[in-house]
Amino acid sequence: MHIRRILAAVAATAALAGLGLTGVATATAATAQGAPSDVTPSQCKQGGGVADLTDNMCKGGMHDGQRVD
């Protein structure tokens, strides 16, 4: 009886771990597809950042680290 409880707990843990990994993979794929790679200088400023045209990067704000086109 004790062994059955242990096996049931192990099976349940494995099933939940599999669901968790699937959810992470789906969330990562959705994020990668929806994020634009380039922003305009005005989009950078509107998002609260500063367009650094020497590095062609948006620094700060919601577009931080994205390339300025």
Rank of each mutant, 00 (worst) to 15 (best):
A14C: 09
G47A: 10
I6L: 09
A11C: 12
S37N: 07
A25I: 05
G60K: 04
R4I: 15
R5C: 09
A15R: 10
C58I: 00
M1G: 14
T28K: 05
V39R: 00
K59F: 03
Q43K: 06
T54C: 10
A29Y: 02
T26N: 11
V39W: 00
K59I: 08
I6R: 00
G60M: 04
V68N: 00
A14Q: 10
D69G: 04
H2K: 11
A27E: 13
P41A: 09
T13E: 09
D55C: 08
G18T: 06
A32K: 05
A8E: 08
R67A: 02
L53K: 15
D38Q: 09
S37Y: 13
A29W: 01
T13A: 14
R67K: 13
G34F: 09
A30V: 07
A17D: 11
A30W: 09
C58R: 02
D64G: 02
G60A: 08
V50I: 06
G48P: 06
M1F: 14
S42G: 06
G61P: 12
L7V: 15
T54W: 12
T22P: 00
A27T: 07
Q46V: 10
S42C: 07
D55F: 11
A51R: 01
H63S: 01
D69E: 09
L19W: 05
G20T: 05
A35W: 07
A35S: 05
T26P: 09
K45S: 13
V24W: 06
T54R: 08
